[in-house]
Amino acid sequence: MKPRVAITVGDPSGIGPEIAQKAAADERVRAVCEPVLYGPPNAVAFPPGVVSAEAGRAAYESICSAVRDAQAGVVHAIATAPVSKLAFARAGLAWKGHTDLLAHLTGSSCVAMMFWSEPLKVVLASVHVALAEVPRALTRSALDDVVSLAASELPRFGIARPRLALAGLNPHAGEHGLLGSEEEQILRPAVEAACARGIDIAGPFPADTLFVRAARGEFDAVIACYHDQGLIPVKLLAFGQAVNVTLGLPIVRTSVDHGTAFDIAGQGKADPSSMIAATLLAARLAARSRA
């Protein structure tokens, strides 16, 4: 039996409803799963391209019902269209995005955001924080958690014994302490400790050449220290094809790699390829986790 995949439409004033419908109607998607759309019943109540508390609240409610259904086994995976963090904030919702909301709804204490594409797979050690906060956010325990999570979750994707690499925080991975101390004080000890736990991980490596090496196949996944460090290479190598996967949830959840694109919402020209890729990967993971 084909898995049922929930597709949440995201912020109803963005391009989410459009790409969700296109993905649900896509033949490749229908060949591998039974898509089910989750969104507000009165879509016309949300003018395209406008950030509003109402749209933020509606996006939130669709996600909540999809998660409830996933936990009850009514659907087997969730693929999500983009939400607006600003609309969430206007609606008084404390979550910065899907990942922390899903962790809250499922009671998961340790989650991480991963970007999956054929040429490159990246796990983020920090996500939606100001760059100035990143050095403080990269604590030893945060790194231990994300490394362990990557090692334990990647087998779900068919990578039985993942070869991981950690990117450095500073230019040239700190160049032996000349350009920053985090590599020697925090990152390298975290890698050594992970190796001692039996995890196949190397680094920290200079980020600018690490992604070239990973794309050539030297590593199965890279752990990036901050959002743009991971997203710059993913988008350059696989724009429109990368899928955001949440590691550490009891349910399968994938997402698009782009935002709400309010500037082109409601015009029928949004590219659904990332939404389709996210739905296809959700179906594949659902089939695997039910097997």
Partner: peptide
């Protein structure tokens, strides 16, 4: 400087 350009000041205001 910041992810998503700081997203209107939500994460970083440089």
């Amino acid at each position: 400087l910041n992810p998503h350009g700081g997203e209107s000041g939500l994460f970083g205001d440089e």
